[in-house]
Design a protein around this nucleic acid. Structure first.
Lengths: 353, 353
DNA sequence: TTGAAAGCGCTAACAG
DNA sequence: CTGTTAGCGCTTTCAA
């Protein structure tokens, strides 16, 4: 199973290009060439101000001449600091994570570190398994839309540096987009259009977001005198849309809130295929404002948020650049604003027949 | 600049959870506890068949009891093998790369390795810079849609293990989707619809694909008695579509081939905004069949390919699992089949006025 | 300010 | 089959 990574033929022309017998020069080579001790080379490279200016210049010059490149592994061994951060998402092909990935990548790079990306395929076991596997080669973890239980997360956070995206667990730093307030906005929007009955097409059973959203939909709907029903769970992907659409239609609601845009887009397609008009017959709302939400038919009303910023923040929290000073008792739980983007998939409730 | 990754506060309750003073047990701990030498522990872990069955059992049992986890850094230092592969894409937010990323991730994991993802932002310098930076922490590189020159790539391939996706360079292993034949299919399709004049909305100047495609469009169009014009370059993103659409319309062609689906979708939107009908007034074709190509308006005719497989293959080629035996003189250059997906954005050429 | 030397945790000869 | 002993390349006391 792990055999694939064993035999690695050398690059074709290694000897041709690299003069030094194909081996990278080490600080020993530099030290010898420069006539100083290895520790001096190490200092000149890592903490330039703790070395005489002239020797530093000299060492650096020699290092450059020899084409010296510091070996990150060797550097990491004593310190344990790998300058690497791992990001796990539940599905790399879900456009929802694009912004998160991009933001995390940017911030990681800005901090001089490297990002490792993992796909956990909606599986809590793959999440914890990956953490264990990479623990040791990574300085910390960012988990987006974790499917683990609060207990598992807290346990993991106790043993590893860990921050969360789109998930809140007490005592664990996190960055989320305000979907509670956002969900309220959705209900208000639907209420203002005269809808009195709404269904929520739920996401995965283990999704914390799905639970939270349903909770807010339920209580807010009640405030507005609307009936609310939860259907599902459905896979949070376009392919889940057919079943979701049929369920929503079967229920007879005039408005449907899908767990995410992928599901909503899938529903749109199914409605079209069945000859139902959106929003005339039924209104549809999604979450995330993903790529495509603006050009599907009809363009989707959806809750947008700063997910790229969430990615950046999560990395910041992990590396301590932002919350470093005020490390209060409770871990920082950042909530980013969200706003409802109203497009054409929502409209006035159809007149009661 | 690299300060962000320095100070890393320990996880909150490390002492609470971890009995051993918060330090991970090493093979020394296991060896002492098991009453054997460290080398025996090492063997029991790494090459189980080179150790007495009973001692192995014992060692493994002790290791588990102590919660031993092998330190990948320490393991990698002597061997230089990090069990890690880096994948660079020119833009992480381009859905085109989803399949590639997913395929590469899968195959890497299947080989017991870990994938590092990098965004090179369309910059050849970032590509080579990233390679240099990660060289040493990675066993090899996969670069998708490289913007480097052939010379640079060859030079890099000489010093590092490297495979390419969507790019062919002599002597460097690669996996591409057959866009030459695919482009031919596109032209044939347009010709069969009666189009006699086609424009190619070109991708980035440094894009090898863009150059290749134009070349095939040009020669094939001639064979079919069509006129072909290249316009651009345009940014290969939705936002590039407005300029591309205007240019295509201004040119007066009845068919437009966009460098990729992102650009094509952007064009579709611009045409709609300007009141032009697709395909009645102008036909539009894209490349990649990305997420969204099937539900934009109108759904896009585009060239589809097995990009996920390309991702898998590139990793395979890198790790040597597939081409290991037949390491012939010329590096393997795999070409995957492509096929034209005909949707509603192409139609009969408008009658000549 | 610089050098000598002892590791970081694991692997790989080389003996036994 | 198992133990001893060097390293891998870099950092880091501790002296000088």
């Amino acid at each position: 199973m792990t055999s694939g990574c064993q035999k690695l033929p050398q690059p074709a022309s290694v000897a041709t290009v690299n003069g030094d017998h194909g081996k990278r020069p080490t600080i020993y080579d530099v030290a010898r060439e420069a006539g100083v001790a290895t520790s001096t080379v190490s200092r000149a490279l890592a903490k330039p101000d703790r070395v005489n200016a002239r020797t530093r210049e000299h060492v650096l010059e020699v290092a450059k001449r020899l084409g010296y490149r510091t070996n990150p592994l060797a550097r990491a061994l004593p310190s344990g600091r790998t300058q690497t951060v791992a990001l796990f998402v539940s599905d790399v092909t879900n456009p929802h994570f694009f912004g998160i990935i991009r933001g995390a990548e940017q911030q990681t790079r800005a901090a001089g570190c490297t990002l490792i990306l993992g796909d956990t395929e909606e599986s809590p076991d793959l999440e914890s398994g990956n953490v264990e596997r990479l623990s040791g080669s990574v300085d910390g973890f960012v988990i987006a839309a974790s499917r683990m239980s609060d207990r598992e997360i807290r346990e993991l956070a106790g043993r590893h540096r860990l921050t969360l995206i789109s998930r809140q667990v007490e005592g664990v730093p996190s960055a989320i987009v305000d979907h509670e307030d956002g969900t309220r906005q959705i209900i208000e929007h639907l209420a203002s259009l005269g809808h009195t009955s709404v269904v929520y097409l739920a996401g995965p059973r283990r999704s914390w977001l799905a639970a939270k959203r349903w909770q807010v939909i339920r209580t807010t709907a009640r405030q507005f005198g609307m009936s609310a029903t939860r259907l599902g769970p459905f896979p949070p992907a376009v392919r889940g849309g057919a079943a979701a659409a049929d369920a929503a239609f079967g229920h007879g609601a005039t408005a449907a809130i899908a767990h995410n845009d992928l599901l909503a887009i899938g529903m749109l397609r199914r409605f079209a295929a069945r000859g139902l008009r959106v929003p005339d017959d039924i209104s549809v709302v999604g979450y995330d404002d993903i790529f495509g939400a603006d050009f599907c038919s009809p363009p989707l009303t959806t809750l947008a948020g700063q997910f790229e910023e969430a990615g950046r923040l999560a990395v910041d929290l992990l590396l301590g650049s932002r919350d470093g000073h005020r490390r209060s008792r409770s871990a920082s739980q950042v909530v980013l604003p969200s706003h409802l983007v109203i497009r054409d998939s929502t409209g006035p409730a159809p007149a009661r027949q």
